[in-house]
Amino acid sequence: MAIVFQKPKSLTDVPYHYCPGCTHGIVHRLVAEAIDALGIEGKTIGIAPVGCSVMAYDYFKCDMIEASHGRAPAVATGVKRALPDHVVFTYQGDGDLASIGLCETVSTACRGENVTIIFINNAIYGMTGGQMAPTSLIGQVTQTSPYGRDPKTQGMPIRICELLATLDAPAYLERVAVNSVAHVRQAKKAIHKAFQNQVEGKGFSLVEVISTCPTNWGLTPEKACQFVEEKMIPFYPLGCFKDKENGK
């Protein structure tokens, strides 16, 4: 018998602190699988965010740096420019990337830095107890929108892939989800491509992953995956928003 599935080598043996069924863990694994498949563990440097994945540095075997809240793309820019032969990625939540760090996100994309960004959109500030994020859905009840997000006072949710697709510089922008086996397979391909692009010098690549937060959504892990299918994906359509090498 041959092994058809096992934990990727680029993950350490430290058990994740994530809540049961939180799909941050699936995305960590997909990142590690891409690092393994490309054989780049020894020259990869990851930038961890502030948010539930703040301790991502414990889980990846490659070198890791902790950035202050939202600044991961700026740190990645510095690291990549200082060590251009290394592979540099950030792993960021929606509060980190789309709220406090929106400036760094847009500027880094606009400069077309040759880095890889893995963006976890779970429509909430998970770590701090479930406050509204820029990506929270219309009507979504959170700690800071107890009557549901009202666009009149709290604005509309931000679609990051669509926003960045208006820029000329990014090489690759894709939105995926990890709420089902089929979606995990697609997400794996997109994350692999986002790393491969960097290795090939193609430029700024971002994969937005629609992820779950069962704890702060107040749903079981299974129901949270259904919420992604029924509520998140209709507002955040999956697919490729920019792929320069293929003329998109």
Partner: peptide, 19 residues
């Protein structure tokens, strides 16, 4: 059947599948 669907969805890398 060793399809590894279970392992693909496991956030915590609990499952190894051989076939």
């Amino acid at each position: 059947v060793g399809c590894a669907s279970c392992a693909l969805m496991c956030p915590d890398c609990v499952i190894t599948v051989e076939r």
